[in-house]
Structures are given as C-alpha cells and as structure tokens.
Design a protein around this nucleic acid. Structure first.
Lengths: 238, 238
DNA sequence: GTCTATATTTAGATAGAC
DNA sequence: GTCTATCTAAATATAGAC
C-alpha cells in the first residue's frame, strides 16, 4: 500500500503548501502531520522539492479534469468555459487546496523543470486554455487587444490571488460572494462593465456602505485575520 | 553623516526586496552590497525585520507623495486619479523598486505591527485611496457593486502583480505596453470594456498573433526569464 | 562605528540499527 | 520501510578588540 501512503503524504503537503507556502512548510512538519519519521519520508520522496513537485502535479491533473468536465457541454461559449475554469480555481483557492510555490527558488525550479510529468501537464493546460482564449477573442467576448499569453498569465496569476484570503479572513462575506467578486474584477474589471462575469448579477450595494481600512500586503499571500473593524478606519496590527 | 549611510542601506534593501523578496534577501548580502561589515549594519538596524520595515516605510512615503502630485490638479476625476496611482505602482514595480514582503512571517508582522510610523502611513494611504474610490463609485465611473474595501485590496494587490515580471522577462514588449495592459486588465477586465483605462487606446492586435505558452506560477513573484519561444508552444524549464 | 571572529538556531538531509 | 540519532549548511545575530 505504498501508493496510499504517498497519497496521504501529498495530501498533507498540498494542504501545508496552501496554508503557509513552500518556504514556511518544513519537512519535519510534513512528517509529523503524516505521522511518520522524517527519514521514512525521504524513502518516498527524495527532497522537499520533490514533495512540492508531487503536489503541483496533482493539482495540475485536477485542473485538467476540471477542464474535461467543463468541455462536456459542447455548446458552451469559450468565454463561459473560461469563467467556469476561473471559478474552479477560486473555489480551490478558497478551500485551501491550492498549493503555492516560493518566489524564486532555483533548486525548486530545477526540479520542476526536470520533471517531465509536470512539464507535460503545464503544457497541456496552457495549450487547452490558450485555445479557449483565442476562440473567445475571435467571437468578441474577450478583449482582442490583449495577446493571448497576457490573458493566460493573468488567469494563472489568479491561482495565487492575495485578495481572496484577505476577504476570507475578514469573515464578513460568504464564499460565493467573494468568488463572484473576484470573477467580476478579473473579467469585467473594477470599472464594472456591460456584462457581468459568470453568474447573474447580485443585489447592488450602496457605494459607501463599507469603509475601506486595509493593510497593504505587497507579498501577496494571506495575512492574519484583520478582524471586524468599526468606526473610522482602524488598523489591527496582528 | 549617519543618515546618508542609512539611506544607502535602505536603497540596497529596497532593491534586494524587489529583486528576490524578503526570504531570499540575506543580511550578509545587504552588508556586502553596501560595503560594510554585517556587525556594523546591526548598529544601524536592530534586525532583518527592521531593515524591511524601513524599506516599507520609505515606499509608503513615496506613494503618498505620488498621491500629492496626482491631487495637484483638482479637476481630475477620481477614477483618473486612481488610474494614475496604479500607473505609479506599475512603474515602480517595473523598475524593480517595489519591495515585496514574505508570505506570513510572524516575526516580521510583529515588527511592522509595532511600527507606529509604518502603521500611520498605511492608514493615511488607505484612507486617501478609500476616499477616491468612494467618489468614483458615486459618480458611476467605478463599479458600485464592489465594496470599497474590495476595490482597495484589489489595487493594493497590484503592487505584487506576478504578471508584470513575467511579461518583462519575456523581453517581447515595451515597458509602456506592459503597464498599459495591466492597467487595462485591472480596470476594464479581460473582457474589455467601453472605456479604455488610463491612456488612449493603442493599435489593435490580431487575436492569434501570439500563441500562448506558459508556466503556471501559483506563488506569484517573478520567475526566471522564459526566453523567446518559437513554434508551437515549447517550454523553457529554466 | 567599524571590523574579525564566533555563537546560536533552524531545517534539509543522512547513517545505520532493526 | 521505519525508526532514532546525527550531520551539515546557511543565516540571524552577537562578542569584543580597535
């Protein structure tokens, strides 16, 4: 039952990568949560990088399966398929299932770049999404001003959207509400637009019903919950 | 000339934070680049966290000065002021002057949360931007569906936009082109919209003139340059 | 205030018994 | 394959002379 064991390991790695990112995930921690000795872990995976690569491979496989599901309905327009795919990404991110890699770890990059399975999955995902993008641009539902690769990168980047964890941590909004907003800002922008992205429009809010009070977080990733704020813009250091 | 010395130190810290992020910036490296011994550095700043905090304070001060400049023309609509501010952010990021903090370093968060100067700057920046946002929502130039704090977070998040470094590294596009695209996707979304964000519309491109080929980078932050790609979607591991 | 040299801690990885 | 115990490297931080 080696495969079961390794599946359990990747489960833990995936969760820890989503929770704290690659840098702050320690192998000791992984071993402890799986319930085995660290040395035993290394019998299954050669390095910390290999652990991360395994988690990445699995999430890419899941993403491709999500695309399969979305393509099951052949009449759905390309732009709607892209909406659905972004919704899958937001849901995965919201549920703490989206692993996040580090800024620029050359060792990790070397491992990923040498992993044929990983590279092949990235390639397939990019090509299939690229096809949807070009199709949506042809039929005018996606901006044709942007090169397809800019659109692709922009969608990929949503997988580590720092806004989602902040909104989630605030505890003020429902999961669906948060995901709707992020879809809307991605496809329609902050200015709003003719067509709402994805789901039907929600009940409009009054403009000044919430007063902004925020901490900038240039690093991305989640911060500690800022808590409910009251009054005229207070900060909660953490 | 202690202040000059410390200014030089913060210069180096700022650049290194922008280049490699907090995690991969080492104090040895800072000392080496400044040209002084590490122990001397610690006479000026108590810790690595204090170094990062100093860089953050400085960039916030610069951001506030940028807002001053933008507000100098009182007739400019709020949404255009927001455009200008995002353009400042994109320019700073493009020039490698935007420091990036780590995912969730509790020690660093404690230092920042205890830094009165830092907190005060964050507060002022948030309040002033928040006022612009509410104003733009009132006059209908910004979506009133979004709570102001969602808009604010979304704009803050652009300071660590992972798309910019990828596009920059590709070497295919000019700085202005990249910044225009990112402004457009932020305010008008991927679907495109009635009004172009910020600057006048550029010459339209044909939809399929660039073929997407990408590596997903869920962590955000910059990857190594993928290089020019040719043919039908090849990957450059790095 | 600056330096050389060193202390301390942490975390990735391994040795070797069973 | 799993374990305990250990090695090693890197990086933050400090001692103490000048």
């Amino acid at each position: 039952m080696r495969l079961m064991r390794e599946e359990a390991i990747v489960d833990v790695v995936n969760r820890l990568l989503a929770e704290k990112g690659y840098e702050f995930m320690t192998v000791d921690e992984v071993a402890a949560e799986v319930g085995m000795a660290k040395a035993s872990l290394y019998k299954h995976f050669a390095s910390k990088e290999a652990l991360a690569a395994a988690a990445m491979v699995r999430v890419l496989e899941r993403a491709l399966r999500a695309m399969d599901d979305i393509e099951r309905d052949p009449r759905r327009p390309a732009v709607e398929r892209l909406h659905e795919m972004l919704r899958w990404t937001m849901r995965t991110l919201y549920e703490g299932q989206m692993p996040t890699l580090p800024a620029q770890n050359s060792a990790l990059r070397a491992v990923l770049g040498a992993d044929k399975v990983y590279l092949n999955l990235v390639l397939r995902l990019s090509d299939r999404l690229g096809a949807w993008i070009v199709e949506a641009q042809r039929d005018g539902t996606l901006s044709a001003n942007l090169p397809p690769e800019v659109v692709l990168f922009t969608l990929f980047a949503r997988a580590c959207d720092p806004v989602l964890p902040v909104l989630k941590a605030s505890g003020q909004y429902s999961a669906e509400q948060i995901q709707d907003w992020l879809l809307e800002t991605c496809f329609s922008g902050l200015s709003g637009s003719p067509k709402a992205a994805g789901s039907p429009a929600k009940a409009p809010r009054t403009a000044a019903s919430a007063r902004p009070a925020a901490q900038p977080n240039p690093s991305g990733h989640d911060q500690a919950a800022p808590g409910r704020r009251r009054g005229k813009s207070a900060l909660t250091p953490g």
